[in-house]
Amino acid sequence: MFNLTGDERRAILFLAAVICIGIGISFLAKRSAGVREYLDIDSGFGKLDLNRVSRDELLRLGIAGAKTCEKIISLRDTKGRLANLEELKEVRGISDKRIEKLREFLYVE
C-alpha cells in the first residue's frame, strides 16, 4: 500500500520500535521505583575504592601527580587500611579542597 523499499521499511520499523519501547519505559519509570533507580545512573559511576586502587590507576585519572599518588599509596600501606578519605589530609599537599576533588573519583568501602 505504501510502496516502500526494504531500507525505508527498516528505518520506519526502527523508529516505530524505538517509540514503542520508549512509551513502555516512560510508563514503567513512572510506576516502578526499580526502573527509576536503574535509569538513574550515579554521577560517580566507576569510582575506585581507595583501599584497593593502585598507583597506576590513581595516576591515570589525572587527579594528582606521581609523587602525591605514591604518598597516598604509601600512607594506605603503612596504615593497612584507610577508614575514610579525610585521612588523606595526612599526606602533605592534600587540603580539604583537594579531598573534595578526590571524592569525585574515590570512595572508601
Partner: peptide, 21 residues
C-alpha cells in the same frame, strides 16, 4: 515523540555503563 526516543537512549546508556562496570 522525542521524549520516548530519549527514554530508549537513556536506558541503553544505563545498560552500557553498568555492563562496562
Amino acid at each position: 515523540l522525542s521524549p520516548y526516543v530519549a527514554s530508549v537512549g537513556e536506558l541503553a546508556a544505563a545498560v552500557l555503563l553498568k555492563f562496562n562496570g
